[in-house]
Amino acid sequence: MTVKQQADFKLEIPHGDDRERRVCQSCDFVDYQNPKIVAGAVIVQDGKVLLCKRAIEPRKGFWTLPAGFMELGESVEEAAAREAFEEAEAKIEIDRVLAVYSVPRIGQVQVMFRAKLIGGYGIGPESEESGLFEWKDIPWSELAFPTVVWALTDYAATRDQDNFAPFANPEGTDALTR
């Protein structure tokens, strides 16, 4: 394809595939569109949970766990640690995988960890504020996303356990994810 040519994509099922994809009609390039991976953590210190108030859309002004999209070249653990620092200036020690949630409606797979806060925290550029919350003081009605509620709930079920199987989407949540 020369510089002046423009790709002409059409939805079709490529040979050997089972679903429609965008296929270039000039060179047969298949433009695969796959889910994005979000990495985050339930970060605790002295029994309190670190939350950040979002300074960006979607759900600006609502509370969330530090989490965000993975970058190329980093592990999921590195992404969770980077997001904790970006959103709350927090250094963390990851304990283990807490859960893997699927949100097909928005093309995401969310990998959430249990982690400990190492030292202090602050306010990153994507947050309006951040804070450590006692369990009874978590602003449940102001949480940004269903997956934040799920992760906190799954954390509560395992906070005194050293070994457990990672969680997945709670039963009956299909309407929230599709």
Score class of each variant (00 low, 15 high):
residue 70 M to C: 10
residue 20 E to G: 14
residue 169 N to Q: 08
residue 71 E to G: 06
residue 109 V to H: 05
residue 52 C to G: 02
residue 48 K to C: 05
residue 68 G to H: 01
residue 7 A to E: 15
residue 161 Q to I: 13
residue 102 S to Y: 13
residue 4 K to S: 13
residue 144 A to G: 10
residue 137 D to N: 09
residue 107 G to T: 01
residue 52 C to Y: 08
residue 51 L to R: 07
residue 119 G to Q: 02
residue 79 A to L: 04
residue 5 Q to I: 03
residue 130 S to Y: 05
residue 41 A to F: 04
residue 36 K to H: 09
residue 57 E to M: 10
residue 92 I to R: 06
residue 46 D to Y: 09
residue 109 V to F: 10
residue 70 M to W: 01
residue 68 G to S: 02
residue 37 I to R: 02
residue 158 T to R: 08
residue 143 L to W: 08
residue 66 P to T: 03
residue 47 G to I: 09
residue 141 S to R: 08
residue 58 P to W: 07
residue 43 I to T: 13
residue 34 N to V: 15
residue 76 V to G: 04
residue 43 I to F: 05
residue 126 E to I: 15
residue 81 A to P: 09
residue 39 A to C: 14
residue 142 E to W: 14
residue 156 A to D: 12
residue 139 P to I: 06
residue 151 A to G: 12
residue 23 V to W: 03
residue 121 Y to V: 03
residue 63 W to T: 01
residue 4 K to D: 14
residue 99 A to K: 06
residue 3 V to F: 15
residue 102 S to Q: 14
residue 5 Q to P: 03
residue 135 W to T: 09
residue 154 D to W: 09
residue 147 T to Y: 14
residue 1 M to I: 09
residue 146 P to W: 06
residue 35 P to W: 05
residue 12 E to Y: 08
residue 116 K to M: 12
residue 141 S to K: 14
residue 138 I to T: 00
residue 5 Q to A: 13
residue 41 A to I: 05
residue 30 V to L: 07
residue 38 V to G: 06
residue 149 V to L: 08
residue 13 I to P: 03
residue 15 H to S: 15
residue 36 K to N: 11
residue 48 K to Y: 12
residue 52 C to Q: 09
residue 64 T to Q: 01
residue 79 A to W: 01
residue 121 Y to W: 13
residue 119 G to H: 05
residue 107 G to L: 02
residue 65 L to K: 00
residue 22 R to S: 10
residue 128 E to M: 11
residue 118 I to L: 14
residue 28 D to M: 13
residue 24 C to P: 09
residue 147 T to P: 10
residue 47 G to M: 03
residue 65 L to I: 14
residue 59 R to A: 06
residue 118 I to E: 06
residue 112 M to H: 09
residue 28 D to P: 05
residue 103 V to F: 05
residue 106 I to G: 05
residue 20 E to D: 13
residue 137 D to P: 01
residue 148 V to L: 01
residue 3 V to K: 15
residue 133 F to N: 07
residue 41 A to S: 11
residue 51 L to P: 04
residue 20 E to T: 11
residue 120 G to E: 07
residue 67 A to C: 12
residue 60 K to S: 11
residue 17 D to M: 12
residue 50 L to F: 11
residue 80 A to E: 03
residue 130 S to H: 00
residue 23 V to S: 00
residue 68 G to W: 02
residue 37 I to V: 13
residue 158 T to I: 07
residue 50 L to N: 08
residue 98 L to V: 03
residue 171 E to R: 12
residue 68 G to P: 06
residue 54 R to T: 07
residue 127 S to T: 07
residue 169 N to L: 08
residue 70 M to V: 15
residue 41 A to H: 02
residue 58 P to R: 11
residue 162 D to F: 12
residue 60 K to Y: 03
residue 46 D to P: 00
residue 55 A to V: 07
residue 95 D to M: 02
residue 4 K to Y: 05
residue 10 K to R: 05
residue 101 Y to M: 03
residue 72 L to I: 12
residue 86 E to W: 09
residue 124 G to L: 04
residue 96 R to T: 12
residue 132 L to H: 10
residue 90 A to N: 00
residue 177 T to K: 06
residue 34 N to S: 13
residue 177 T to Q: 07
residue 141 S to N: 10
residue 43 I to P: 00
residue 126 E to C: 04
residue 156 A to L: 12
residue 63 W to K: 03
residue 71 E to Y: 12
residue 108 Q to T: 01
residue 4 K to M: 13
residue 108 Q to H: 08
residue 32 Y to C: 10
residue 66 P to Y: 00
residue 61 G to R: 01
residue 152 L to A: 12
residue 35 P to K: 01
residue 2 T to G: 13
